[in-house]
Design a binder for these strands. Structure first.
Lengths: 97, 97
DNA sequence: TTTTTTGTTCCATTATTAGTTAACTTTGAG
DNA sequence: CTCAAAGTTAACTAATAATGGAACAAAAAA
């Protein structure tokens, strides 16, 4: 079971200028959300599946999978569940600490 | 720490007619995604915060919080992080089993 | 009960994801 | 190298989340 405990800074490169804390927080939140792609790709590789196979199992296209895996989409919760649970047979466990 | 391990059926009422398995799976995924509202409301109550306070801390409006808590929105991942981590100071822990 | 606070719902607008196709690039086998 | 499989990207439409405001309802306080 892979664990993905992340801090905001995991997904930043430290190169922003003079922005407010609210704006920075928003940027960091987006970066964290986009990082889900890496997790999905890892899970797909682990399942030894191609993007096309995952797409077919979830009723979508490989281009859509690629976009997500490359961190270009802030996906909806239903998409997260669909890809990981239906597509890859994983169990998504969400805990609030 | 509250744990929200859910099965699809937790969020269904069992009253659907003759629909295919793909359609049913899709419906269940949606239901599961919508169920995040309950989790957010629990966390907010635990933090003794009003919807308006949570809205203010996350740069949004109480009407938006209400809609989510009542399971009327399939929110994006960034919204999940924004409300729980920035708004409520919780830690969202996502594990893939 | 009256007033205030908190929460819900509706409407309209904007922004972005979901979904798709096609062309292109990269990778891996043979 | 050549070919095929796998992955990436751009462009586009449709669906829907995000947002804001206002009116209303419910709950809590005075």
């Amino acid at each position: 079971m892979n664990e993905y405990l992340t801090t905001f800074d995991d997904h930043l490169d430290g190169r922003y200028g003079q922005i407010g804390t609210a704006e920075r927080a928003n940027f960091e939140i987006k970066a964290k959300a986009f990082a889900i792609g890496e997790i999905i790709r890892d899970a797909r590789k682990e399942a030894r599946m191609t993007q096309e196979q995952l797409a077919e199992r979830t009723g979508t296209k490989k281009s859509f999978i690629s976009r997500i895996e490359n961190g270009r989409s802030d996906i909806q919760l239903s998409t997260l569940y669909k890809l990981l649970e239906i597509g890859l047979g994983k169990r998504v466990n969400l805990t609030i600490g």
